[in-house]
Design a protein around this nucleic acid. Structure first.
Length: 290
DNA sequence: TCAGACCCTCACAG
DNA sequence: ACTGTGAGGGTCT
């Protein structure tokens, strides 16, 4: 009784699906049988890239595929964004090394919750925690016959109703009260995530900073990856290393100096530039550890 | 403004 | 095989 599959092909250019889905902005994509699988908007989704085409499959009838095009940001003009990057050597190297890297447009709650779980964690560990969280508290979604079950990301309510111990059992440690407190604030209506779409970046950031466990870095991740504020520039240890090495190789720059630099040097799409630097840095570290 | 603490897991020495 | 140690997309006090 294989559920019916709905398919669509998208024409794409300058899109490196693998780089995009593994670049640390989303944590639920897996490569399997030559395709990328995940759950987006509570739907099982399978994506395959073949040169300048994506083939997408779901099991739920889609009147249109706008939700997916939006998530993948298929409509944006990448060359135009790249043209706003500063014309310097580090940026040219990063762009050359990460051809087709994109920013996704994710669900704010899933993004916020995932990045609360990310603090002082490696990407594989974040994936592990998110997987456990979805398995235990998320709603089952339809999958192809014979597959292991998959789950939607737990809703605000599904998290808010748990206990701190329930969450700690997902290996998230001291982040458990942060996630729980955040879910409960949203459930009580103290902050409306949907409203932030119409806000200025400063107002939206101020709202996100009200949540426990959310500081400047995580707030900027959510502003960038979920709300599309492309000036947001999350500064983490990797970006610190990148800025230090690439822009201040001779002398040691102070944290404050680097943060200031990040907000002035990279232009209107600074967040996009950040993603290129981040990915470039991780690639370089993998090639030559230490 | 600034260390420490915070949970937990893995990789890597010894 | 086993224990010890350090560090990992930060934030809070």
């Amino acid at each position: 009784m294989n559920p019916h599959r709905y398919q669509k092909a998208f024409a794409v250019a300058d899109y490196d699906l693998a780089a995009t889905l593994t670049s640390g902005q989303a944590f639920r994509w897996r490569f399997r049988d030559d395709a990328w699988e995940s759950v987006v908007n509570s739907r099982w989704i399978c994506l395959k890239q073949n040169r300048n085409q994506f083939f997408a499959q779901t099991l739920v009838q889609n009147d249109d595929w706008k939700w997916l095009a939006d998530y993948l940001q298929l409509e944006i003009d990448l060359p135009k964004i790249l043209s706003t990057f500063p014309d310097d050597e580090p940026m040219r190297a990063a762009v050359a090394a990460c051809h087709g890297l994109r920013l996704l447009r994710q669900d704010p709650w899933e993004c916020l919750a995932s990045f609360i779980l990310s603090s002082t964690k490696q990407i594989v560990q974040i994936q592990q925690i998110v997987t456990l969280l979805c398995e235990r508290f998320g709603t089952t979604v339809a999958v192809p016959t014979g597959r292991e079950p998959m789950f939607a990301f737990p809703t605000v309510e599904q998290i808010a109703q748990r206990t701190e111990a329930d969450l700690r059992a997902c290996k998230m440690g001291f982040r458990a009260p942060y996630l729980l407190g955040t879910a409960r604030m949203i459930a009580r209506g103290e902050v409306d995530l949907a409203k932030l779409h119409g806000s200025s970046v400063e107002d939206a950031r101020a709202e996100l900073l009200k949540f426990p466990g959310v500081g400047r870095k995580i707030a900027d991740c959510v502003l960038l990856f979920a709300y599309g504020f492309q000036s947001a520039f999350p500064v983490d240890v990797w970006i610190m290393k990148a800025l230090q090495q690439l822009y201040f190789p001779k002398r040691r720059a102070h944290l404050k100096r680097l943060q200031k630099f990040s907000q002035t040097h990279f232009g209107p799409n600074a967040g996009y530039a950040q993603q290129y630097l981040f990915h470039y840095m991780r690639m370089k570290m993998n090639e030559e550890p230490r």
